[in-house]
Design a protein around this nucleic acid. Sequence first.
DNA 1: TTTCTCACA
DNA 2: TGTGAGCA
Length: 105
Amino acid sequence: MVTSGVGSPLDDSSLAFYTIGQVAEILGVQPAALRRIEDQGLIHPDRSGGGQRRYSRNEVDRLREVLTLTDEGVTLAGVRHVLELRQRVTDLEDELAQAREHSDD
DNA sequence: TTTCTCACA
DNA sequence: TGTGAGCA
């Protein structure tokens, strides 16, 4: 089969770390921009080696959303609120789904 | 060579 | 936000 590529133990979105340089090239931004984003508390990459940032796939994916919003003119502080509200919506949707299970008899 | 922090414009 | 200095 040629189904290789999917299902690998390294396909975890929490694994596969990238350096700031790799992420910057992938997203087409300056490494300094990624540091600003972290400074604003929009993302928290792990540190390893001599204190160097290690971005996981989750981080890169989150960074994509952040850059999309900033490209629209949203400030980093604004993006943080957007991400917080988005998570709140997801949380409330989950609560709503559970509430329906206990009331729709 | 790359990345780090700090600082300046 | 971009760039440079000095360090590990």
